[in-house]
Design a protein around this nucleic acid. Structure first.
Lengths: 298, 298
DNA sequence: CGTGATCATACGTCGTACGCATGGTTGCAC
DNA sequence: GTGCAACCATGCGTACGACGTATGATCACG
């Protein structure tokens, strides 16, 4: 019911006003704008009514701004310019050549997958800025849902999210330098039944993965330490505090010994994931397309 | 038919956006604004659609701005502020205590009536700026019609204009220092039948006034010189180039001799005039009221 | 004194914003 | 776990208002 507002001014009307100021004729300006003369005539009347001042004086030869009109036109120029600036800023963000994409990934990818992926992507799309954040899996999904990031790199696909495999990494067993199995090239997980295990806390994707492998092997080792960080886990193993199952790239970093696993399914698959309930912004879409085109799964 | 425009953004929607950003809840912001929750919800959707970006992420606990939304909100704050600034500037102009009024008047009033009038008005309304312009009568009427000035001081009331008498000035005859009538206190216009007359060009209000007086007296003197400026005319008379009929105040300024006229109607009435097809701005109205209240006609 | 150009307005149509009521989700409490 | 409460989105009917076409009123110019 209420139709009396303080700020109903249309930005469009203001931009029409500028055209009108330049043209000096309602008819001519309307043609330039691409509307009818009465429509522009009424848009002007509407603005004058809302602002409470006469903006243009009507003369037999056209229209001419009143002193108040000069003020309004100057302000309109400013407002329209700032609106255009806003649109430009948003467009720039969405421009597939110059925009920005936010990517969240797991700590365990920070030194391996992510740098290689981004180096290749940056070479192809140098204008796109990639904002990175390292987070646990559940934070990644939350941030995806909240729009804080457009893309995530995870090991699991969540409900309602697209998921594109990027790379499969072999998992290895790491043991301390003095461990009984240290000279083996290849071990079966079942051989670790009596070892103490260092792994990630419950709730982490890596933990679920390792638990699955252990269950398949029919063992459930004692867990000595838990850490969210795979590099830390490798360090604990190197210090003799247990054994662990980690991605190949983490083996040996601080002195642990990596042993290949005999089970062929001992891999973790990392995938790009994003919301599907609304279309991706162009820069994010471009990164997805890049991954899809590269065939990063080797 | 097409109602798809580039710039349809409502300033009002932007100000709603600010409220929404502060509140963090659609329902709460809608209540603060004084509208319904669905209306605000759809205003937000409208803006997001027009700008092509998601501004707020919907969470079960309320809404939270997306990174793009932060940009939009910042721009909206700017746009709304500048709109308010515009409204304030216009309001200030219209404020009866601090506004502005433009007054056009005739050259022949510049040294007599206008200074006295404005001194008195300024004492009563010190905040109002009066912008003055001196113009011929027909320019005054044109500028009134075109909105260049709000008020005029003229000797005639034009069609469709209000006219309020301000002051009646006596007209006198001025003659050169050596003129045969120079010692007379009072003369009749008929006595000037054989003199050469200096007056204003045809089309000037003063000319029409003098012509009328001469016709009443039954004479039509030869015109030796014409000038639009009464001070110049008085100077020409002082130099012996003829006689003239001018307002009392101009007599003797550069050596001419002023003689009272015997005809009682030999006066010019100056009045304040303005357009009546739309209401006067408050500052102008205040000047009109001042004149009306003072009873300047003496 | 007509003629053309100007802007304003009457009119019918149609889009759309409004409020009310309802629906779908989600977090929280018990 | 299971209801409960809070949140935002949406369907619906209404009514306002903006649109274009056509017409009117006014005025400069030839």
């Amino acid at each position: 019911m209420r139709t009396t507002y303080d700020h109903v001014v249309l930005i469009r009307d203001l931009s029409w006003l500028l055209e009108l100021g330049d043209a000096g004729h309602v008819t001519e300006a309307a043609a330039t704008i691409g509307t009818s003369q009465p429509t522009l005539s009424r848009a002007l009347a509407r603005l004058e009514d809302e602002l409470g001042v006469r903006i243009f004086e009507r003369l037999p030869t056209g229209v001419s701004p009143t002193p108040e009109g000069e003020i309004v036109i100057e302000a309109a120029r400013d407002l329209v310019a700032r609106h255009d600036l806003l649109v430009a800023a948003l467009t720039h963000r969405l421009d597939p050549d110059s925009g920005m994409v936010r990517l969240a990934f797991l700590d365990s990818m920070a030194t391996t997958l992510v740098p290689r992926l981004l180096r290749a992507f940056h070479a192809q799309a140098p204008g796109i800025k990639v904002v990175l954040s390292q987070e646990p899996t559940h934070h990644i999904h939350r941030d995806l849902d909240r729009g804080v990031v457009e893309l995530g790199l995870t090991m699991d696909r969540a409900e309602g999210h697209a998921w594109l495999p990027v790379r499969r990494e072999r998992l290895v067993v790491v043991v301390p330098p003095g461990h009984r199995l240290r000279h083996r090239k290849r071990v079966g997980l079942a051989e670790l039944a009596d070892d103490e295990l260092v792994t990630t806390p419950a709730g982490f994707a890596h933990r679920a993965l390792v638990d699955g492998l252990l269950a398949d092997a029919g063992i459930s080792p004692t867990i000595s330490f838990e850490s969210a960080d795979l590099a830390t886990i490798e360090g604990l193993v190197a210090a003799g505090l247990g054994v662990a199952v980690v991605p190949e790239a983490f083996a040996g970093q601080s002195g642990s010994v990596g042993l290949a696993l005999s089970s062929p399914g001992a891999t973790r698959t990392i995938g790009l994931t994003w919301r599907t309930d609304r279309p991706l912004a162009p820069p994010a879409q471009r990164l997805v397309d890049f991954v899809r085109g590269q065939g990063w799964d080797d």
